[in-house]
Amino acid sequence: MSDRARNIVSITVIVVMAVVLFFLVSTRPATVDRVAEIGSRIKCPVCQGESIANSPSQMAEDMMDLVAERVSSGTSDEVIVDELLGSYSGAVLLDPPASGNTLALWIAPVAALVLGVIVILWWRRHPGQDVEEPPPPGRSRARLIIGGAVLVLVFAGIVVFAANSLQDRPAVAAGAADLGEEDLSDVSNETMEAVIAANEDDPQIVGMRLALAERYFEAGDYRSAFPHYLEVAEHPSATDPEAITALVRLGWMAFDGNGEVETAVRLIDQALAIDPGSQLALYVRARVLWCGSAETEQAIDAFEGLLAQPDLAPETRSQIESDLDAARAGESCP
């Protein structure tokens, strides 16, 4: 076979195969796993850097169940994503949109590519001097000054930045340290779990345990919060405010999570037995009564009793007032 014939045959074979392959691939019925796809776009609120599709945590599984339910009922992706972001605090979109404050993320790689191509083309036309005639060695004075100035500026920047970050984030020693009194905002849930588990018998640990439980509670992860609140409530060395908070939270979770109004009221009453004037306990008790039972009258009484307390914070007072108005108007709780 001549070279020419061989070329023609090769080209034909390549083109035909490429076309057939493209046809085969593009006619495959698309089976997109929408549930997994949406799941991979949402960060799990109680884990660290994992999407809800990847996380084994209970909360992520609940969220995935919700996604599956919505997908099967024909809801659109965007609506499902918005619902998840709206109803779970701490859930973040892992798929930054090409708009707003994440636009730069999408522009930067393209800009870098364009810049790279320009630099290469420029270099092609304007290469440096040929190696045969090297410039005289040594350093130029102007360059030295510019370089030094840059160095000084950068260092000033670092010192300011480091000082700021040190101030915001007090160091927390690994493992365990002065438990309880430390600012825990920087410590991960996992670390707290480990420290708590390692020091179960240490009376100082109750404060950290409560902080961790509050964190889970705020993220809506009742299942993880529950054992910690229980432990705090039963712990002999818990202070009164700690025990009250734990009991009230347990009560609210019993109502909100499991719909057990009686258990909830009983737990909150235990808290009130410690301190009959606890505003938190009184308020949550009133809400449980209002939301969970037909005893709206009792709830209204309870709200009114609370408002009679002189030392209410202004926000709490206005919250209670709006709740009271709604309850009086016969509305169900929001």
Partner: peptide
């Protein structure tokens, strides 16, 4: 930052030596 600033400052100071390269 020390590494980056130091290295690139040195690099800038020597740029008249390194910029030469034959044409592709």
């Amino acid at each position: 930052v020390l590494v980056l600033a130091g290295s690139f400052t040195l690099f800038a100071m020597r740029s008249h030596l390194v910029a030469s390269s034959p044409r592709i």
